[in-house]
């Protein structure tokens, strides 16, 4: 299979070589994962993923696909090639979002029902720690150094900074209503936290010892009720120049200048845009659109939506296999 992909671009010598990657989309209502090809953007597979699959991620070596099966209170681990379920991980109740340590182990899981973050060893499948956090933990992010990780709690409205070694909470930063998602810049100097009901993205400086809020990004789209501008997923490019923010029921992705935090543009995508993922070279950004049952493909350089692809029922999370 792999050789076939290598030969094909070689034949099209004039074209930019682009390696197709598998794109995995969880369908919250359909209880499946849809698999797309990042070259043809065709659906190449769909497999059952347990009850209410939401958060999804993949190991750095591309060998294990992790899915939060929220209503099964477990994380299901799949083989990204065969789509077979390999085993499950103890996640604690109602796992929604998680983040992998940059090394691929452990996995940090937000348990929305229990005000806990559960830390699980992906090899031994043991729970390493349970960290009490605010009410309704949701967003998870880990600093590129792996030294600490972030959890956002939706009802407490905080970003909790948690030491990866001691599991102590070192800082709590109050953000706006219902923080959904946290994303570090690649250099680890900035943290973006989206607040769905507050309608803002808080920019936190993480370059010095004590994290501090340095900016608050708000949104405005003519003809869209302000209350529907609800930021959820956030993705920053590796060079830090652009930040993309999914605006939920506003059906738009905001393009933000990573240096000035100014909103440059709003890209119209499908309905209730939720989470996003880049292809490995950041040529494309894929958005899940929960209410239109499709994903939108954004050309990152041109900042244009190039197409949409129908997936399963109520797509929620997305991850792209590494090269």
């Amino acid at each position: 299979m792999k050789t076939a992909w290598l030969i094909l671009p070689a034949l099209l010598a004039s074209a930019t070589p682009s390696f197709a990657n598998k794109v995995f989309v969880t369908n919250e209502r359909g209880n499946t994962v849809t698999v797309l090809d990042s070259d043809s953007w065709e659906v190449i597979g769909e497999f059952p993923a347990g009850n209410r699959p939401r958060g999804i991620t993949i190991s750095p070596d591309g060998k294990e696909l992790y899915v939060c099966a929220s209503d099964d209170d477990t994380v299901r681990v799949f083989d990204p090639e065969t789509y077979e379920e390999l085993h499950t991980l103890p996640s604690g109740p109602d796992p929604e979002l998680f983040v992998l340590h940059p090394s691929g182990n452990p996995l940090y899981i937000a348990n929305e029902d229990d005000n806990l973050v559960t830390v699980v060893d992906t090899k031994t499948r043991q729970v390493l720690a349970e960290v009490p956090v605010g009410v309704e933990p949701e967003g998870m992010a880990i600093h590129p150094t792996g030294k600490y990780f972030i959890n956002t709690s939706e009802t407490t409205n905080m970003a909790h900074f948690i030491d990866s070694a001691s599991y102590d909470i070192t800082d709590n930063i109050l953000v706006d209503q219902r923080p959904r998602y946290a994303e570090f810049s690649t250099d680890g100097n900035k943290l973006y936290v989206s607040a769905e009901i507050g309608g803002t993205v808080t920019v936190i400086d993480t370059s010095s010892e004590a994290p501090a809020i340095i900016d608050k990004i708000s949104f405005e789209v003519p003809g869209v009720q302000p209350e529907w501008l609800q930021p959820v997923g956030v993705k920053a490019t590796a060079d830090g120049s652009r930040v993309f923010v999914a605006l939920g029921p506003a059906n738009r992705v905001a393009v933000i200048d990573g240096a000035t935090d100014e909103v440059l543009e709003y890209l119209l995508v499908g309905q209730r845009v939720w989470q996003m993922a880049f292809t490995p070279g950041e040529e494309f950004l894929i958005t899940t659109n929960g209410n239109s049952n499709d994903v939108s493909i954004i050309d990152v350089k041109d900042e244009k939506v190039i197409r949409s692809v129908q997936v399963g029922e109520q797509p929620w999370g997305v991850v792209v296999a590494p090269d």
């Binding site: 800082d171 109050l174 501090a212 809020i213 340095i214």
Partner: peptide, 15 residues
């Protein structure tokens, strides 16, 4: 805007 945000958050940004 930054100043404003910083002022709003002053009591808790520190810790």
């Amino acid at each position: 805007r930054t100043l404003f945000a910083a002022l709003c958050m002053l009591p808790f940004a520190v810790s």
